[in-house]
Amino acid sequence: MELICPAGTPAAFHEAVDAGADAVYCGFRDETNARNFPGLNFSREELREAIAYAKRKGTQTFVALNTFMRAGAEEIWYKGAADAVALGADALILADFGLMAHVAEKYPQQRLHVSVQASASNPDAINFLVDAFNAQRVVLPRTLTIADIARIGKNIRCEMEVFVFGGLCVMAEGRCSLSSYATGKSPNMNGVCSPASHVRYRKDGGELVSELGEFTINRFPAGEAAGYPTLCKGRFDIADSNGYAFEDPVSLDVMGELEALKAAGVKALKIEGRQRGKAYVAEVVSTMKAALNSAPDRRAPLLARLRTMSEGQKTTSGAYEKRWR
């Protein structure tokens, strides 16, 4: 199975390639990709150099243009696609059907992957994108069990890529409105979930309080590991109880299920984390590569050290094993 690794900067890109990534995914420094954070991503020139570096090392580069086009501003996304194709991207990761249609028509030779943001999570939806736009791979959402993935794999006509490590989005990606509700901005349209412009942290006694817009997301007592300020991982007052309604601050790790994923027909394993630093990318990619090349019983000790770098310093297999709640 291929290892697909994240890069938010050229420095992280080099680390991913050097650590053994089969492919690195990245995006332009604008609203065309779902990690449009301040100071992150690639200029055209940076992407040109990164792709050249990857090609020399036998690594592929996937360019994410995975936000939904703004009506009247489609040219930004069309230009992104044209530039990524011209720069030699091995695949474009797309979410917007209009952009998929544009790419399929203008660049029929270009490999097209369906982003998780497209919310294609059943055979009918996936096969429609294969037939209509010649999609060659689909990135599945993190809401499916391994049995679901196996069932889908038997009934689709393209490759499957699944997230195996990193940030855990528990929502129907591409359709989640929680960030929009709190801030007016979303990963779907603006490329930002819980945008930094609306995030505030403050200390209240020994507690760390995280706020998003007008909402208090969490209060972490002294010594408790912290998480991202997203509504889906917020601590809520519900009736007489106080706790996590959707999901705890926790990261995904399903590397313990590699054999099952392989048997399910998964072609590629994706690491989340374009917003993370190059130290994270280097450590996670090299560890994952070592785990992939190890016997199943040797993987757990290798992967254990990554938990300290994870949200909430905890990991879960999430919906893949659906053992919770």
Partner: peptide, 22 residues
Amino acid sequence: CDADALFFSRDLSVTGDMEAML
């Protein structure tokens, strides 16, 4: 070091303009 990891472990704290700090 990864800043997010240090934030999760509470070794690092950030306040103020998060967009600028990011």
